[in-house]
């Protein structure tokens, strides 16, 4: 009785591939994209304003996001919250060796952020917002990630 459709469905029930999950990820991404555009985080001009320290807007957004995220995570840990499926919640620590990669990679990222005026989230949102040349920047960013992946063994970390 198993049709191709039902066998596809059974593979969909593997963790991380359920349809309900897929809709959550798509939906949350959509809301995030709306927020990025409507708060002007995607604006090249806003990023220039931030790096010139001429308005509080970007600092307010990142700062209040950090405070809200930090307080919520502290609360989740305190009440030992689990996911809606009852799995334990854990945030793995960012790997740390000597900090060379955070500083060198961070500076490279910042140079690019200043030029492009968009970090990865806004790259996607800008394409959706109709600034289509940013699709070239996305391919370029993928090439950057690809280059890092291949150079990783030779770079200091």
């Amino acid at each position: 009785m198993a049709s191709p459709r039902t066998s596809t469905h059974s593979s969909d029930t593997r963790p991380g591939l359920r349809l309900a999950d897929a809709l959550i990820y798509l939906g949350m991404g959509t809301i995030f994209g709306i927020l990025l555009v409507k708060s002007e985080v995607v604006s090249w001009f806003r990023i220039q304003e931030m790096f010139r320290f001429q308005a509080f807007h970007m600092y307010g957004i990142i700062g209040s996001a950090v405070v809200v995220a930090g307080a919520s995570i502290a609360l989740l840990r305190r009440i030992q919250a689990t996911t809606i499926r009852g799995e334990p919640i854990s945030i793995s620590d960012k790997p740390f060796e000597r900090g060379v990669n955070q500083i060198a990679g961070g500076i490279a990222f910042g140079l690019g952020w200043g030029l492009l005026g968009a970090c990865p989230g806004p790259i996607y949102a800008l394409i959706g917002a109709g600034v289509t040349p940013v699709a070239v920047a996305l391919l370029s960013a993928m090439l950057g990630a690809w280059t890092y992946g291949h150079l990783k063994p030779h770079l200091p970390h």
Binding site: A104, G105, I107, F109, G112, V134, A137, S140, Y148
Partner: peptide, 16 residues
């Protein structure tokens, strides 16, 4: 666009 995008992708992955 091209160099900016490349540095964003390379730098973000290098920095983790």
């Amino acid at each position: 666009i091209v160099l900016g995008g490349f540095l964003v992708g390379f730098g973000a992955r290098y920095a983790g």
